[in-house]
């Protein structure tokens, strides 16, 4: 019985430790970790994500689009453009990337993101 108490105490201790780590992480949201938080939020608000060529990125900039600030805070920086779905047709290189936390999406240097209808990204 004593050893089972030890195992429960070990689990309780682990839970308390993770709670303290989480508290620290949440404090960091206003600092470096905030970039990842805001990147996650942008991706969560997106219905689809499309990898783009540099040439398509230039087309978007020429049309008046600016990359989202959160992508520019990453190192190396990413150009993340929020676009309307009907704009995708003019982006010849657009290749859909699954919206998941993955090396594939994080490895894309240039992405077009289509938000869910009615959702807005406020920085």
């Amino acid at each position: 019985m004593r050893s089972s108490f030890e195992s429960l105490h070990a689990r309780a201790g682990a839970i308390r430790s993770r709670a303290l780590v989480r508290r620290w992480e949440m404090r960091q949201l206003g600092r470096a970790a905030g970039v990842w938080f805001r990147l996650g939020r942008l991706l969560a608000f997106s219905r689809s994500a499309w990898a783009l060529s540099e040439s398509d990125a230039e087309t978007l900039v020429a049309a008046g689009h600016s990359p989202h600030p959160v992508g520019l805070e990453l190192e190396p920086s990413r150009k993340l453009f929020v676009v309307a779905e009907d704009q995708l047709a003019s982006l010849s290189s657009a290749r859909e990337v699954p919206l998941r936390a993955s090396t594939e999406i994080l490895g894309c240097r240039t992405l077009a993101l289509v938000l869910f209808e009615g959702l807005e990204m406020v920085e």
């Binding site: 938080f37 996650g40 991706l43 969560a44 998941r100």
Partner: peptide, 10 residues
């Protein structure tokens, strides 16, 4: 933050 993680989970 956890809702965001859920949204992007495999």
């Amino acid at each position: 933050s956890n809702l965001t993680v859920l949204s992007l989970m495999k």
